[in-house]
Structures are given as C-alpha cells and as structure tokens.
C-alpha cells in the first residue's frame, strides 16, 4: 500500500505540470490584446494613445508561451503564484483566505446529504419496487434535475424575502464586528467552529442561520446520488446468503436491516461521501454567487469570466492538488475499510 501511495504522489507533479500547461495553452489562444483586458477596466485606459500597448509590455503579455511559462514556474518555485487582479491580493493568499469559507459550506452540506441520503436510500431499498421506493427516487431525482441557481433563488425568495428567516451573505453585520474584533481568535477561519471555540454561541447561531439555505440547496441537489448508491448497495447486500440465513432464522426485519445489512451496505457509501466532499469543494461556484457568500468557487468563476490569467492558473493548480490528494485519501481509506479491495 505504501508503494501505491508513493506512486500516486509521484504522479502529482506530472499532473500539475500537465494542468498548468493545459491552462496556459488555452489562455494563449487569446493573444495579448484580449489578455490585457483584465488589467484595464474600460475605454478610459486608452485615454492616452498607446497606453494599452505599454501595459501589455509591462506585464509581459506579448511574450511567447515558453517564456511566460518559465517565468511563472520560476516564481512558483519561489512560492509566488503571482498577483490576483480579481482577488486584489497575491494569488496564494487570495486562494487560502477564501478556501475556509468553501470548506465550511461543503462540510456542513455533507452532513444532511449523507445522513438523509442514507436514510432515504435504506427506506427505498427495503421497499424495493413498491410505491415508497418509486416516490423517493422520483423525489430525489427531481432534486438532481434542478438547476442549482433556480433552486437557490427560490430559497431566497421564500425564506428571506417572504419569511425573513435565512438572510443571504455570511454573517450579519453585528456578528461580523464581533468576529473581526481583537478578542475573537480565528483558529480555523471557519466561523461555525471558531465561534464555539471562542464560546460565542450567538455568533455560531448567526452563522448557522446564514448557512441553512445554501446547505438545503446543496443537500437537495445531492441527495439523489447518495440515495442511489445506498439503495443499490443495500439491495445487493439483502440478496446475500447471510441475510437470507438471518431471515430464515426468524430474526425480525428491523434487526436484519439495522444489524446485518446496513453495516455492510455502507462501505461503498463511505467512499462516495468522500468523493462527494471533494466534488462539493469544487461545485459551490453557483451557490456562492447566488447566496453572496465569499469562497473559492466564486473567486475562480470571477477570475474565469474576467480572464484574470494568474488567478485562473492558481485556482486550477489548487483544485488539482485538492482533487488528486482528496481522491488518494478516499482510495486509501476505502482500502482500509474494505479489506477485499486491493490497491494496484
């Protein structure tokens, strides 16, 4: 197994190299005239003739690809990922300061997704091909079929505009002042955790209030997936010999399901949940925009639409590391949970 992990880790630099070359190549299609538009806001930049050309030269946008890449790589090796025009700070700190927000949202969302998803999946499997099974599956697939921005905007419409319960944003104004004050220690930069560590439960509740709507949105959209996995895994287990034996022995259905079947059925669910956290980390782009929450997804989306060269590459690099390492962790832990799996 150690050899497997090392092999995968050794591939990481190769993949990162490939990813950055891929992005550089894509952006190279634009040419300097379009790349420069990230550096200027509008026609005012041209109020002095030739100003744009000067900006192109200043930032080296007209240099050939290998020169640009070499310079960028040299800086990265020194720990400098460049300057983010969208983030208005160095790319590295722009990413690191936004990541906790996204991580927090993903972690909160995974809780209802997994628990409700498993619960519904078991119900569905137990009532295989009965009405409840079909109903739950259609209900979950409707969620899966919803565009996230439509659902999110509906949530705002109902729970903020109509009922006033769950405001958009990250924290309310007063609480934000508490969080930014000097007494409040930011251990993790995830406010729901920090507030408990600081014993400020008012902040915690406020943060939760801002989290509910986006979490429900994400959860409803992702339930179907977990439900599906749990259901089929459960069905598979229920056909196994030992379950039949247990039933034949006259154990009650509850005991069969809860004691014997569920435990074994949840192994693949665990893997999928791990993959799902990773997918959620990369899949919050729209939710963050709709609910006006800070975060990595929104940052990368803005960088992409504004052609902010350095931020796009930095973001892609970060995501790749996240995906590669995340998947490695998932695979390894899968192998640890389920001894039947052999890593190769």
């Amino acid at each position: 197994m150690i050899a497997y992990i090392i092999r995968r880790l050794l591939l990481l630099p190769l993949i990162l190299f490939g990813v950055t070359i891929l992005i550089f190549g894509m952006l190279e299609l634009l040419g300097p005239e379009k790349l420069v538009s990230a550096y200027i806001r509008g026609p005012e930049a041209e109020k002095v003739a030739g100003a744009t050309q000067k900006i192109i030269e200043k930032y080296g946008l007209d240099k050939p690809l290998p020169v640009k890449y070499e310079r960028w790589l040299g800086n990265v090796l020194k720990g400098d990922l460049g300057w983010s025009l969208v983030g208005k700070q160095p790319v590295l700190s722009a990413i690191l300061s936004r990541f906790p927000y996204t991580l927090e949202l993903a972690l909160w969302a995974i809780i209802p997704v997994v628990f409700v998803g498993i619960w519904l999946g078991i119900i569905s499997a137990v009532h295989h091909n009965k009405f409840l099974d079909h109903f739950l599956r259609v209900f979950a697939i409707i969620g899966w079929s919803f565009p996230d921005f439509v659902f999110g905007l509906f949530m705002i419409l109902i729970f903020y505009t109509q009922l006033g319960w769950f405001p958009p944003g990250y924290l309310s104004f007063d609480m934000e002042r508490v969080v930014t004050s000097s007494q409040f220690v930011n251990y993790t930069k995830m406010v729901t955790i920090d507030s408990i560590l600081n014993l400020r439960f008012d902040v915690f509740l406020d943060a939760l209030r801002h989290l509910i709507a986006p979490v429900i949105t994400l959860a409803y959209l992702w339930w179907a997936y977990i439900l599906r996995i749990t259901r089929s895994s459960m069905l598979e287990v229920l056909r196994k010999e030992y379950i039949r034996t247990a039933r034949a022995k006259g154990l009650s259905e509850d005991v069969v399901i809860n004691k014997h079947a569920r435990r074994n059925a949840l192994i693949p669910v665990a893997t999928v949940s791990g993959q799902m956290i990773i997918a959620l980390l990369a899949g919050t782009v729209i939710i963050e925009s709709v609910f006006n929450r800070p975060g990595l997804g929104r940052f990368v989306a803005m960088a992409a639409t504004q052609l902010d060269y350095m931020s796009i590459i930095g973001g892609a690099l970060f995501y790749s590391i996240l995906l590669v390492l995340g998947n490695l962790i998932v695979d390894v832990s899968y192998a640890l949970i389920d001894p039947r799996i052999r890593l190769q």
């Binding site: 990813v19 899949g283 782009v285 990368v300 796009i312 973001g315 892609a316 995501y319």
Partner: peptide, 10 residues
C-alpha cells in the same frame, strides 16, 4: 483533475 464547471468556464 480540473473541476468540470471551472474548466468549461475558462
């Protein structure tokens, strides 16, 4: 190793 939406966006 690039998220689909982000890659498609770029």
């Amino acid at each position: 190793s690039l998220p689909f939406l982000v890659a498609a966006m770029v």
